[in-house]
Design a protein around this nucleic acid. Structure first.
Lengths: 220, 220
DNA sequence: CTATTATTCAATCATTCAATTGAATTATCT
DNA sequence: AGATAATTCAATTGAATGATTGAATAATAG
């Protein structure tokens, strides 16, 4: 009744992007890339994939326009593409939170229990940083911190926290963040810090969300 | 190195949602549903799918948490689910616009040529409606209009426009809208109206985007 | 130029997905 | 209750996807 081939072709393109998002490994790769750009081998290591497999998935992401790559000496360095990639991931998360029983269950049974502590909002953090009533703590591994972090953040990785190799003021509240809403590092960090007598809370969202909002300090 | 099964399960859920978005037919079904709720047969007709096929795709969308359904007499009426479904579609569109060569080509060769006329923005429309310097025109079929439309909008479907069965003030600008950014109805309507001496422009976005922003008048 | 390292390509096999068909459900009407 | 209409289920087929392996390509160092 309504022949509309150009529209159909557009929807094919949109669907292809969605399919590129349609695999857990690729979402993990995107989470890693949301921290900063990386060569293939580093991504493979962090996601536990073989190099060949990671490479294939990265190419699917590239065909979908979700990541871009450039060669740098021997390495091919991947990064998130321009455009609303973080927003697409956030939308998937939002839909899962509301409507997917399986996801709701995981979130409530696992993350909500860990987080009896409600997270610090963006506005609250800004206020506290201006007042100097909070120390901002980046608990990701040091290399991720170096690739970019929030302004004023101190980097003490989770392993350093465990090893007690750190020094933080005890009188001010510590606000910890990591990779994103479903990154467990900051949950664990808050637990550890509280055990040791700190006043610690999590930041809502992680580094990528703040970066997308324009608040990140970029590394070299 | 970093065993994290709950996170993995979450990403599986997110990926399942993305896969549910990963087919052109399902995106078309979502576009239809973004206009308003509908029983299966109506959706099948509008998308040109067999009823059985439409039903299968709708069930995949339901499993993905993208649509919801309720029974109403003999019919099962589907609607968009709560949550950022429109936002997810918008993100796919945005990524395609920026990064997917095929999509850029279609958009520029087809839509941009039609639209030498730049669209009316949200803010501009609001202003003009307050001033009374514009007539807002909904060019979708009458049944879609009845399911919900923008406040103050007059419904003259494209076929009615073609048949000259309408009456609009010639001294005020006409702002036409339809189903969304890639719905061609409003492009065609503006062309027709201009041929006949009206001052006509398109509204940016379509009904679903405005509805998501809370501006729609809902039908019965 | 050769060796080395990082990444990609090509081929394979098992799994999953899409469309079609006809039968089975579920609700209404008489 | 039995007939009818709308939707879903179940089973089939052919096509696409994902993981693995080993070979091929690029860039660099010696």
């Amino acid at each position: 009744m309504n022949q509309d081939p150009p529209k159909k072709r557009l929807y094919e393109s949109f669907a292809a992007i969605a399919r590129a998002l349609g695999h857990a490994h690729r979402l993990e790769l995107l989470e890693q890339l949301a921290q900063g750009e990386r060569p293939v081998e580093a991504l493979a290591q962090r996601t536990g994939l073989s190099v060949a497999n990671a490479s294939q998935h990265l190419q699917q992401l590239r065909r979908g326009g979700l990541v871009a790559a450039r060669r740098e000496g021997k390495n091919v360095v991947y990064r998130l593409a321009d455009g609303p990639v973080i927003e697409a991931l956030a939308a998937l998360r939002g839909i899962a939170e509301r409507n997917v029983a399986e996801a709701r269950e995981v979130m409530h049974s696992y993350f909500n229990n860990l987080d009896s502590m409600e997270p610090v909002t963006r506005a609250e953090l800004m206020q506290r940083l201006r007042d100097g009533t909070a120390t901002l703590l980046d608990v990701r591994p040091e290399d991720e911190y170096r690739l970019g972090h929030l302004p004023g953040a101190v980097n003490v990785s989770l392993s350093a926290l465990r090893g007690r190799k750190f020094k933080l003021p005890k009188n001010r509240q510590v606000v910890a963040y990591c990779r994103g809403p479903y990154c467990v590092l900051s949950f664990e960090a808050v637990r550890l810090l509280r055990e040791r007598g700190y006043k610690a809370r999590r930041l809502e969202d992680g580094f990528p969300e703040w970066k997308a909002a324009g608040f990140a300090v970029q590394g070299p």
